[in-house]
Design a protein around this nucleic acid. Structure first.
Lengths: 145, 145
DNA sequence: TTACATGCAAATACTTTGCATATAA
DNA sequence: TTATATGCAAAGTATTTGCATGTAA
């Protein structure tokens, strides 16, 4: 039999309209993080879901580990589908000028964890790395001006 | 003549009571990031400074580059004295259990920037790295239980 | 049927803003 | 003196919560 992507089932969460809808939205663009407001608006297309329900849903999904939450300097929380276990850990670089993004194939931290453990005695359990820069196009633009 | 630490003068900002007080507070604990509320409370000891002034001051200091701002998952902004230029770039690891912290001597990103440029064409202009883990004490605790 | 999720409205929490006054330069 | 910073109160935005109702299991 064919395996299906069933995160709610796996986490023993009720399969409600709101949760399924939101997971569907996040799944369509796994590399992007959405604000609660964005999710709320996107839900509209499907069926109306209250903004408070969006927040409650995001809290549930975040606590269950299905979704990761990160705060940005604009003061809003952004949510993104968590990488399923076993997937390749990687990071993303975002262009500060045009917001284009690219994946970084590897993670510089993995090699460092052992070194940090011996230097500091700290055991690293998680990390977040945000890279900002200029994409090739914008780099060219900047050099021209 | 002796050089003095005079960030406000350097940045051509007026030397007001609020700014001097807040910089003094941040200077006493350069490795820690303070919420606006914490700064406001700490100011109390010296002289009353309005919370809105704290926020305005932090915006000014952040824009001038004297202070760095980062959002945490609790939804609050935290402010910390920026590393003066020329200081050694480094990162910090925080214990998720007791909040103890330690410095990481080096930055794993520097060595990687060239590699990322050739792999992706992106020029890295900045990065933020947050490490979370267990300090030696808490690691021992966890293993015991 | 029953525990849990949702909608709606009201409440909170953090941060910003308008305006009159105070202060640094 | 004059532009800029501050205090105070009010407003704004993001997020949470209480409660009656709806719904998945």
């Amino acid at each position: 039999m064919k395996k299906k992507y069933d995160p709610l089932g796996i986490k023993n969460l009720r399969k409600t309209k709101a949760r399924k809808t939101i997971i569907a939205i996040l799944s369509k663009d796994k590399d992007r993080a959405f604000s609660a407001e964005e999710l709320h608006t996107a839900c509209d297309a499907d069926l109306q879901i209250d903004l408070s329900t969006v927040y409650r849903t995001m809290n549930t999904l975040t606590e269950s580990g299905l979704v990761t939450k990160s705060m940005r300097d604009d003061g809003k929380a952004y949510f993104q589908l968590a990488e399923p276990q076993g997937s390749v850990h990687h990071h993303r670089i975002v262009c500060s000028r045009c917001k284009a993004s690219a994946d970084i194939a590897m993670c510089p931290l993995h090699n460092l964890e052992q070194q940090i453990l011996s230097e500091t005695g700290f055991l690293i359990t998680s990390h977040s790395l945000e890279l900002t820069g200029l994409c090739p196009d914008c780099k060219a633009e900047e050099e021209r001006s």
